[in-house]
Design a protein around this nucleic acid. Sequence first.
DNA 1: TTATTACTTAGAGCGTACTCTAAGTCAAGA
DNA 2: TCTTGACTTAGAGTACGCTCTAAGTAATAA
Lengths: 120, 120
Amino acid sequence: MSPYTLRYYEREGLIIPQRDKNDRRYYTKQDIGWIGFLLHLKGTGMSMNEIKKYVELRAQGDNTISQRKELLQQVQTNSLSRINEMKMHLEVLNHKIDWYEGKLDHSISEEFADYLKRFE
Amino acid sequence: MSPYTLRYYEREGLIIPQRDKNDRRYYTKQDIGWIGFLLHLKGTGMSMNEIKKYVELRAQGDNTISQRKELLQQVQTNSLSRINEMKMHLEVLNHKIDWYEGKLDHSISEEFADYLKRFE
DNA sequence: TTATTACTTAGAGCGTACTCTAAGTCAAGA
DNA sequence: TCTTGACTTAGAGTACGCTCTAAGTAATAA
């Protein structure tokens, strides 16, 4: 993670690092843990806006826990769908690669265009 | 897929639709099949630049087949890595959701911060 | 014949998530 | 004391993938 990204996240209100007596930033273990968690959220495909929403809810305290949970569950559902979509698209890619193998082997192979029709 | 996107792909050289006598576009079954395949490529996470590269190779004929196959294999590898990454990030999300369940149940639960340390 | 409608083009604009620049401050080493 | 270097800020710029606008043309309906 670049310092640029760190500043950007800070500007967006996702992180609030500590400051020393000279007003310079330092990151506590908690700060770093929190940033790590943000990266996990990002990694699931959560957008900046969703993360901001989550951070706002968090700032409002314990009575937003169920909302936060719902938000994360939504993200979880979306993420799983995206994974499944990618897997489906990968299957076509796999088939195309196999088809290239066939072409390279000069063996008989179903026309790829015909195969593709199965996905329409 | 919006007509805007279709024009965009055309400008980028990914598709070359047919034209009628009045110079208006029409898409043959092959065109549509090709667009469908492009969407599968996109769906695996392939970037416009990678797709353009692929299209260029394709335009050069059969002696680029092994290069095209290698390109797709690279995309396949990247896509699988991304899926696995997402799964890992999802595990953390799942745990956080479970932790919220715990909080909501007022039952004892490991501090999430402690759990997160396991990923550092 | 005129008006409407559906297309055409080039090019500008947008949303997202960064990434970088420029100008300034300030503590520490030579 | 000077200078170096590491930080600070606000704001501009970039890459990607679209998305939209404006101005023009041309076939069809009234």
